[in-house]
Design a protein around this nucleic acid. Sequence first.
DNA 1: ATAAATTTGTGCGTATGTATC
DNA 2: GGATACATACGCACAAATTTA
Lengths: 365, 365
Amino acid sequence: MFEQTNENKLEEPKYEMVKQHVMQLLKQDIIRFGEKLPSEHELMSQFNVSRNTIRQAFSELTSLGLIYKEQGKGTYSKFVPKSRNSKKIVAVITTYISDYIFPDIIFGIEEVLSGEGYSMLLSNTNNNKDKETQFLNNIIEHDVAGLIIEPTRSALANINQPIFDELIRKGVKIVFINATYDDVPASSVLLDDERGGFLAAEHLIRLGHTRIAGIFKKDDIQGLKRRKGFVAAMKQYKLPIEINQIVEYETTNEHIHPYILAKTLLSQPDRPTAFVCYNDNVAAIVVQAIRDRGLSIPESVAVVGFDDSKRSIDGSIKLTSVIHPKIEMGRRAASFMIEMLDNQLDDLQFVYRPELIIRESTGVT
Amino acid sequence: MFEQTNENKLEEPKYEMVKQHVMQLLKQDIIRFGEKLPSEHELMSQFNVSRNTIRQAFSELTSLGLIYKEQGKGTYSKFVPKSRNSKKIVAVITTYISDYIFPDIIFGIEEVLSGEGYSMLLSNTNNNKDKETQFLNNIIEHDVAGLIIEPTRSALANINQPIFDELIRKGVKIVFINATYDDVPASSVLLDDERGGFLAAEHLIRLGHTRIAGIFKKDDIQGLKRRKGFVAAMKQYKLPIEINQIVEYETTNEHIHPYILAKTLLSQPDRPTAFVCYNDNVAAIVVQAIRDRGLSIPESVAVVGFDDSKRSIDGSIKLTSVIHPKIEMGRRAASFMIEMLDNQLDDLQFVYRPELIIRESTGVT
DNA sequence: ATAAATTTGTGCGTATGTATC
DNA sequence: GGATACATACGCACAAATTTA
């Protein structure tokens, strides 16, 4: 007799009930690894169902890998190696790996991750959005727990949004560093780039400079914000901003462009007496352009870099620069990741307040 | 009636026959992705078995992920994403990540790996064998395709041999860089450290030095070999080796030890007029010790480093150094890995022949 | 738009085979 | 050998979703 009408079981089939019951027993450690489950017969009478029903429940539990059966002996709880460990990978993608501030950032990340038993799946985009796409697609296959990512050319449209959506849907935690994609909800660890740009400009203004040029990167958010801070400082100190004092470049032809821009600015009749640069790389290029023009630093032209990278103290002249927290930012991004994974959080935010370090390139020797 | 006696079916149950039959249909593309399978009823009459038997076959095929069923519609062949991609990870472990020659090595590795669609699982040991153990254990869980590893403190006993055995048993390809563990059969990409040590010493001998000190690392094979090359040069040029001219340190207290060793050597009555150093880091420390002693470089004391790292040109004096192929070595190690994975090879070897680059620290300005 | 047919889903009962203790 | 437990197999009934007439 089929008693579907009898009780108010709107949804759950009987074998599902049995299955859930057994899963509870396993979950609550009432039946531990290797211990025997009740026999099919026992469960038949306990639940007052047919043997087939029990068998269907067991069958599904078997293919889930929770139990195994031995003919003639019984059915047993299976040893599952501690909470699938293969998820203990955090993917990390940055613009570069071996250059500039990135070894430090990665060092900070690795330190925290490996301390927590996680491994780091690392790649770099080299400012190429296709490489970003490729890596993001890769990690979808790889069952990672989290992703720490520095968006590539973040001021452009985020072509990878669908991939981020899928990652989020899969429960992969995401932490942005240096910049964010606005259309992706995630945690972030940022530097206050706007304030950095402001500090750089303000420093030069206070030194008495009035014709200050800015060279910024156009295709990422950091560039836009540093530019914005630069403009804010000019306004606050009531300095006019001639339109041609601010120039921008994109990452195609990265090494050529800022040099040409600097050269052009320097050949104007009212040439700038100071440069605020997007980063130390650009600053080094500007330094070269100034020297190639036969001008001295800092006497004729002052230069401020950004990021306080090794490059700012490597060259023949030590660069005044805005301090980027590098290792500390890496550590914090990784700590955020751990916290998100442990406590199922999704929206942690931190913004570092930058400071300026003053060196030879703005006149302090 | 149960007709087990009827035919000579010694092993295979009926549902298994049905299952195999359907798997054939799928394998031979007779039923393609998304196409409908025969209904349970059709198969019942075709195989002359009960519906439950068909259902059991289908049930197993479902949990294998080969088919899916839709109530009221039918059973369909499922699209399986081509050949599980999750193995496309190569683990990489080096002494450091963000320092010294390692960003370059890692850059070279990443370049090749990502070009081949592989991702890089990266960690560093920081000269700590326990960290090596931890990482190796980690990657066993992570189903990686290969491992590129710089052995840590390779002159000591390889406590991780059992883990390497397990990795090899699992088919994980291994490439050693910079040094090998003799008890682990694998490919390797090395530098001829012995020749490097020889070149360094020979250079100083040809400059006329006769009292040449060597400071080497004791706990890794590179150190032993560089020392050996140093000794070989002394012998070839028939210079006596006073026992106290060669000193060794271990990586505990890495930054303190070589300094003290150098100071001690410099306070001898017949102090050395030249140093061959294990690497550029040690060389930089020796430079400091010489200066702290009030001696000039290269006039009073000459110094040769090893690895041609950034440090050799960063400091106040540019170091003569033995060239390490860094990026190139990284690329080759990764290429070996790809080749091993593609062609199932296991024993590729390459040894770079080092050259010396001469700079200020041995008298050329 | 409805009814009928088809197909899978859930469930019961029964019988026999085979491995373990 | 006997009891127990899982494995295989058949038959039947009704439910639910989908397609078709």
